[in-house]
Design a binder for these strands. Structure first.
Lengths: 126, 126
DNA sequence: TAGACTATATTCACAATGTATATAGTCAAT
DNA sequence: ATTGACTATATACATTGTGAATATAGTCTA
């Protein structure tokens, strides 16, 4: 029933559900953008090369379009491979606003938990 | 391709991946506990009745046992239905410590994003 | 014309969670 | 005694979000 050696914390520390989506909405808030370019800007929000999954990025952008949060069109002219350029909608801005509220709740809950942990380890054990 | 009415923010605001597991490890840090009793204590970490999924709770406890983070036994004696009582292991304490670090990273990333959002909406638009 | 780089997309698989349901013991009231 | 409320644990099925791997193809330089 129990493994010989427990598997400790073998996940991706940066993984937070739908966090990528919120980051993309913010990047698109005041200027249009395309997949590959957005990937580079995501480093500002802690997405390293190792961390960012390109498949997930494109899939998320398409889903966001399906949900009406962004619109897209193929960039006219320009050199290099064609780019699908995304623009945020009013619905997208509204969704972003809601998500920011959610993230503030998440942050508060993390603070509560971490605070409780620090109190326990400082007083009792160790 | 695009829905008539976009579906806005229809998720569970309190949902954070594996957050329940970390809360349970913390609750079990210095005393044993069982499923139903832990469910009540979880309100301290923001889990409302609506929010907490009992199936998920029991399933998570069993998975934690499988991973060697806790051990369990059926409570001897006592009134009412039998309780499966859980106790944290040294591995569980170590895992909790790692998770706390992860949560601090998550919190920092949320702060970065929320800060960037607040700056955008205060200066530019609106 | 080969290799590096830019750019988008799909397929398959898995992990975490939600919904619904099943089971069963205890206790108080009728 | 038996119904209903409450305590307590657990499983089956489905959905969601993500990761890994792979496919396709245009551009640019050597």
């Amino acid at each position: 029933m129990i493994e010989d050696q427990p598997v400790f914390c073998d996940h991706k520390p940066h993984h937070m559900e739908r966090f990528l989506e919120v980051c993309l909405l913010l990047l698109l808030y005041d200027e249009i953008g395309y997949g590959y370019g957005l990937a580079e800007q995501l480093s500002h929000f802690g997405f390293s090369e190792m961390d960012l999954n390109v498949s997930t990025l494109y899939r998320t952008l398409r889903k966001m379009e399906h949900d009406g949060l962004v619109t897209s069109l193929w960039e006219a002219g320009g050199q290099g491979p064609r780019r699908r350029v995304y623009e945020i909608t009013e619905g997208g801005k509204s969704e972003l606003e809601q998500w920011i509220k959610v993230l503030k709740v998440r942050k508060a809950r993390i603070e509560t938990l971490v605070g409780a942990y620090d109190r326990k380890v400082s007083t009792g054990d160790k």
